[in-house]
């Protein structure tokens, strides 16, 4: 009788790579995030509350949320339109346009800020005609919004266009034969099918806008109580040595981002289950 061959453990993969990955990620990603909360909580709740009750801090958080909301709304509509046109229409220059609308991902945000200044600033290409009229988009809330719209434009597109591309034209055709107009088809057939993409695109835009720094710092002029966003506030307080103030706002920002992120995760997961 031949001895039974012991089954080797090769069938189950070693867990070593998992531990390696964790060991790398811990100092790289997890610990810095933890540090924010640890520092923010160090002075106890009263210190945290006091730091947040600072009017500059309150303005910065409110302003950031407002800008993020505006950006998400405007780019939500614009991005969907861009996705619809680029996905459903065939025209000359479509390829080029696809590249152009995705360009903001590749351009450093500081460069975006500079280019906006060179266009809308007091001596900019367009700004110099507006300046005599008393219109000054730069160093004003509008400038911040413009910068954020620019920087976050591709996120909506990236979330919606793949869904549109996958949505076969027969769904629209089915609606047409049933009697739905082009608008009704968009409203009742296409838009609901895009729901998941719209949600995640908007949240993504919102989150990115909330954290935008590079372009904002240039176009806003960092004016407190006027154009200072939360990230700018954090930076300014750090530079001035008010670490508690900076930490408190950073903790709020981080928490908000986490919430957004988990909502996003849940939505995409649900979409995937239903989409099958």
């Amino acid at each position: 009788m031949t001895p039974a061959i012991r089954p080797r453990r090769a069938a189950r993969a070693s867990r070593l790579p998992i531990f390696l990955l964790l060991a790398v990620l811990l100092p790289l990603l997890l610990m810095p995030l933890a540090a924010v909360f640890i520092f923010a909580g160090r002075g106890g709740l009263p210190a945290f509350q006091q730091a947040l009750s600072n009017p500059d801090a309150q303005f910065a958080i409110r302003f950031s949320l407002l800008i993020a909301l505006g950006t998400a709304l405007v780019n939500g509509v614009l991005g969907t339109l861009a996705a619809y046109v680029l996905s459903k229409y065939r025209f000359r220059g479509r390829e080029a346009l696809t590249v152009i609308v995705n360009l903001p991902v590749a351009i450093p945000t500081v460069v975006v800020g500079t280019s906006l200044l060179l266009l809308w600033g007091p001596i900019g290409l367009l700004g110099r005609f507006l300046d005599p009229l008393g219109i000054q988009p730069m160093f004003a809330p509008l400038g911040v919004l413009l910068a954020h719209l620019f920087v976050t434009f591709p996120y909506m597109l990236g979330a919606v266009k793949p869904v549109l591309d996958e949505l076969e034209v027969t769904y629209e055709e089915a609606a047409y034969t049933i009697g739905a107009s082009r608008w009704q088809t968009f409203r009742y057939v296409i838009l609901p099918a895009l729901r998941g993409g719209l949600f995640s695109g908007t949240l993504l835009t919102f989150a990115h806008s909330l954290g935008e720094f590079g372009a904002t710092v240039l176009v806003s002029g960092n004016l407190r109580l006027r154009t200072q966003t939360a990230p700018l506030f954090i930076f300014a307080q750090f530079e001035a040595g008010n670490i508690e103030n900076a930490n408190a706002v950073a903790a709020v920002l981080a928490t908000l981002s986490f919430l957004l992120f988990f909502t996003l995760l849940r939505i995409t997961r649900r979409e995937r289950q239903e989409g099958a």
Partner: peptide, 21 residues
């Protein structure tokens, strides 16, 4: 005439029924 005004019923190979309804 556009498809809306022809009063035809059309069935596609891929069903194409609206998923969110």
């Amino acid at each position: 005439l556009p498809p809306q005004e022809r009063n035809t019923g059309f069935v596609f190979q891929n069903y194409s029924i609206f998923r969110h309804m």
